[in-house]
Design a protein around this nucleic acid. Sequence first.
DNA 1: CTCAATGCAAAAGGTTTGCACGCTT
DNA 2: AAGCGTGCAAACCTTTTGCATTGAG
Lengths: 126, 126
Amino acid sequence: MRRDDRFRSAQQLHADLRATPTLSAGLTSVYRILRILTDQQVVEVQRAEDGEFLYRLRDNDRHHHHLLCRICGRAEEFTLDDLEHHTDRIAGQHRYADVTHHIDLYGTCPECLGGQNDQEPEKYVE
Amino acid sequence: MRRDDRFRSAQQLHADLRATPTLSAGLTSVYRILRILTDQQVVEVQRAEDGEFLYRLRDNDRHHHHLLCRICGRAEEFTLDDLEHHTDRIAGQHRYADVTHHIDLYGTCPECLGGQNDQEPEKYVE
DNA sequence: CTCAATGCAAAAGGTTTGCACGCTT
DNA sequence: AAGCGTGCAAACCTTTTGCATTGAG
């Protein structure tokens, strides 16, 4: 995961591992390790538009959201300080407790916009 | 669905139908009908925190988001006009195309806060 | 030897699809 | 007879779990 900071599903990570000759791991292990890393907050989790879980290494601990490329998983972080206010306010107005929010943008990044036809991720140059 | 405007999963809707002596429907039909109604935009779809799809009749066509009770599915609508701006701006800054956003709040509504122990929805008085 | 990590296979849970049945026209 | 809606069962997909094996300490 250190080699690619895009969000990937467990299945993708597993496939990528399999595709790497020197590495290997069962799908079970991928899921188990991801769960551990998630619990320890070393990876961050994001939901894809279709509901799959996507993972990548957490790079900072500030609360933020993502603009996520739906093709390749590349992500831009952003924060909307106002927003956090607003959500609190709305929750308060209606007296809802334990409020959490999910705020995510999905789009197609400039890179992937190029080769629009293929569903495959563009090669990601590090 | 006209009798209860809370968000419910297909499974819940199916169970509720089954529980009603005069009605009946297979799970398959529930899903099929929901798909049709969704395509026709007569129901609105929302994702639960765990990824399930939740449905209810659409009551207006203005773009809005929901503060959703995670126990009973009751929903408060809200709009954040600023927000729509911000999301557009962020998307534009990064040159992402076809941007959509998912903004949802989940909480526990005052009613459900009462009988916290049970996972069952509170009786909903119309 | 012990214990933790691994991976296969199977289960789980939500959703979709194949297919045949029965009802209406 | 044709066509549609229906529902059961099975398929699908992602994620989780049971269980026996492996390997390091």
